[in-house]
């Protein structure tokens, strides 16, 4: 992606290395949340790692570049949408099966990627929520400067 802010962020060496490492971190986050119902990990842990990939990008390239990659308002919307959908999954369970958060999808076969009912869906939603939320916390903490004495 074209960098409109070449002078922000860290040196060329850091930027070049980041171009290789950021995808690895991102992929590792995807792996953790996709396998959340099979191996240790899950939506929260995967979300944190995905947020860290954005933090990594911010440190190397600066805030404005990341805002070009994924807009701040989009992150806000994704975060709210993911949590709303997570509540909706619970409500669907209530109306389809009789109990709040009850499983309404096939449980599949043990150790298969598509199994465990709605758990992978919830993992995905929680991953988006945590990833976007944590990155936004970082973003806002990084962008505000309090003047001394105020």
């Amino acid at each position: 992606m074209h960098n409109r802010y070449p002078n922000e962020g860290m040196s060329l060496i850091v930027k070049t290395i980041t171009r290789f490492t950021v995808w690895l971190i991102f992929l590792f986050g995807l792996y953790i949340f996709l396998h959340g119902h099979l191996t240790p990990g899950g939506g929260f842990a995967g979300g944190v790692i995905i947020a860290l990939s954005y933090v990594h990008l911010t440190l190397a390239y600066g805030r404005n570049y990341v805002n070009d990659v994924l807009k701040k308002s989009t992150m806000h919307s994704l975060e709210a949408l993911a949590s709303l959908l997570a509540v909706l999954v619970g409500i669907i369970g209530l109306y389809a099966m009789g109990h709040f958060l009850q499983n309404f999808m096939g449980v599949g076969q043990l150790h298969h990627l598509l199994s465990a009912g709605y758990i992978p869906v919830m993992n995905m939603l929680i991953c988006v929520k945590v990833g976007m939320g944590l990155y936004l916390v970082f973003y806002y903490l990084a962008s505000y400067h309090l003047e001394e004495g105020k």
Binding site: S77, E79, A80, L81, L84
Partner: peptide, 13 residues
């Protein structure tokens, strides 16, 4: 639980 929770996220969205 879910009515205020959904309302909170709907407001944010």
């Amino acid at each position: 639980i879910f009515v205020p929770l959904a309302a909170a996220f709907l407001i944010a969205l």
